[in-house]
Simulated scan of single mutants.
Amino acid sequence: MNWKDLLENRNRLFWLAHSAGWFGFALVHYLGSLLHDLRDIFVVIIFLNAYAGWLFTVPLRYIYQKVWNLPPLKIAVIVIVASYITGVLWQIVKNINYWEIYKHGYKPDFLLMYTQSSVWSFYIILSWSGLYFGTKYYQMLQVEKQNVLKANTVAHQAQLKMLRYQLNPHFLFNTLNAISTLILVKENQTANSMVTKLSEFLRYSLDKDPMKKVCLESELQALELYLAIEKVRFEDRLSVNFHIEPECQQALVPSMILQPLAENAIKHAIAVQEQGGEINITVKRFANDLLIEVADNGPGADIVDGNLHRESGVGLVNTRERLQALYRKKYSLVVSHNQPSGVKVNIRMPFELT
Rank of each mutant, 00 (worst) to 15 (best):
R348K: 12
V119C: 00
L353M: 14
W120C: 05
Y62E: 15
K66T: 12
L55C: 14
N147L: 01
S129M: 05
Q324I: 14
Q273N: 14
D37P: 01
Y62L: 15
Q275A: 13
Q65S: 14
R322S: 10
Y62V: 08
L6D: 02
R328W: 04
F201P: 00
G134N: 11
K161Y: 09
V154I: 15
L13G: 02
G313S: 14
R237T: 03
A287K: 10
I292H: 07
H156G: 01
G53F: 03
F234P: 10
S19Q: 08
A158R: 06
T175A: 13
Q65E: 15
M113Y: 08
M256Y: 06
G277D: 08
S312D: 11
Q249L: 15
R233W: 07
S180E: 09
P246A: 12
L216H: 07
A52V: 10
P350G: 07
L353N: 09
I179M: 14
W99Y: 07
I266V: 11
L111C: 00
D236P: 11
M113L: 01
V79E: 12
K74H: 10
G313T: 01
L308E: 06
G105W: 12
P260K: 00
A271S: 12
I92W: 06
S218N: 15
R233G: 11
L353V: 13
Q339P: 00
S336F: 01
R285T: 11
L326G: 00
K136M: 10
K145L: 10
L48M: 14
N11W: 04
A325R: 00
E247H: 08
L31W: 09
N69Q: 13
A82D: 05
M256T: 00
H36G: 08
H309D: 08
F201M: 13
N11G: 00
G24N: 09
S19C: 09
L38K: 06
D40L: 12
R320E: 00
F286Q: 13
A265T: 03
T86D: 05
Y106H: 04
I229Y: 00
E219P: 13
V43E: 05
S193E: 11
I41Q: 04
P108M: 02
P169M: 12
Y114K: 01
V58R: 08
T153V: 03
E274C: 01
A76I: 04
E100P: 03
L141E: 11
E245A: 15
F14P: 03
L227T: 07
S312E: 10
D302C: 13
A271Q: 02
R237H: 10
L323F: 09
Y123G: 12
A265W: 01
R164H: 14
L73P: 07
N346R: 10
S341M: 03
L202D: 03
I266L: 09
L216C: 06
V314W: 01
T319V: 15
H268F: 01
P340S: 08
N241S: 14
L31D: 10
V253H: 03
V232Y: 06
L13R: 04
H268C: 03
S180N: 15
P72Q: 06
A20W: 05
V304M: 09
L16I: 10
L70N: 05
